[in-house]
């Protein structure tokens, strides 16, 4: 079983330790006997989408994000073809915004046309949209935990990855009821950093999807690596304790 991960722009779209997402995915796959190769592409490269099974991009500063957009736009058909062929794509942090139709700058009003793989649009704002997030998804059973840190609001997502944000901001900023984007094997969330490290069930979900797409036989039990689930439980409990007296919590009982 051979598997190729393509990490887009790891030298700079890596603001919150995003490399850990691929490190943890790689280790889980390796524990299942999958031989994983990680390739990287920088702005100057033509990303090898044709041989990628998994495509990942993390967050950058707004200015770096625009440079990433400029680098990726000429290759959008190759990215689309890879996804159509069954490659899984995961874009986290403000890399998610690139998948949509456009990003509009706050002060200048300048519109940056994006990849157009999804229908949503993003508007940059002058304030910081940040906070610890707890959300639900219909894709797996447990709550999602993470942190959002952005200066933008995303509108027009009809298929959110996390359908109900219990705590923290969502796509449309503070009070947004939903977060992220999913369509087939394209996954995006504005949660930053090592979202897969923080959510072992997200890793397991992706592994099931990967095995299905590759036509590999899934073992009865997926590997459980030490401390990951314990760390998740502590984070969720801490957040629930914070919210015990504040609506809409406590979601642990919900």
């Amino acid at each position: 079983m051979e598997f190729t991960i393509l990490h887009l722009y790891p030298d700079c779209m890596s603001l919150y330790g995003e490399y850990a997402n691929l490190a943890v995915l790689r280790r889980h796959l390796a524990a299942m006997g999958v031989s994983v190769t990680v390739e990287t592409a920088l702005f100057e490269d033509t990303p090898p989408f044709d041989r990628a099974d998994f495509i990942y991009m993390g967050a950058g500063t707004e200015r770096t994000q625009k440079a990433a957009l400029a680098a990726l736009l000429p290759h959008k058909e190759a990215l689309r073809a890879a996804v159509d062929r069954g490659a899984v794509a995961l874009f986290t942090g403000n890399a998610m915004e690139l998948l949509g139709k456009s990003i509009t700058e706050e002060e200048s009003g300048k519109v940056w046309p994006c990849l157009g793989l999804a229908d949503f649009t993003t508007e940059e704002v002058v304030y910081q949209v940040q906070g610890d997030v707890v959300a639900r998804t219909s894709l797996w059973g447990s709550f999602v935990v993470g942190f959002m840190n952005k200066r933008s609001e995303t509108y027009g997502v009809t298929t959110p990855l996390f359908g109900l944000v219990e705590r923290g901001p969502g796509n449309a900023g503070d009070g947004g009821p939903e977060e992220g984007y999913v369509d087939g094997n394209v996954f995006a969330t504005h949660l930053t950093g090592p979202i897969l490290v923080k959510n072992p069930d997200f890793v397991d979900f992706l592994i099931r999807r990967i095995f299905e797409l590759k036509g590999w036989a899934l073992p009865e039990a997926l590997p459980v690596l030490p401390y990951e689930r314990e760390a998740y439980a502590v984070t969720l409990k801490e957040l629930a304790d914070q919210d015990a007296d504040n609506p809409p919590g406590p979601y642990l009982q919900g």
């Binding site: 330790g17 490399y19 610890d132 942190f147 930053t192 090592p194 984070t235 801490e238």
Partner: peptide
Amino acid sequence: YFTGETSWLWD
């Protein structure tokens, strides 16, 4: 302030 954010450990 409270946060459960631990991404920085990876930096």
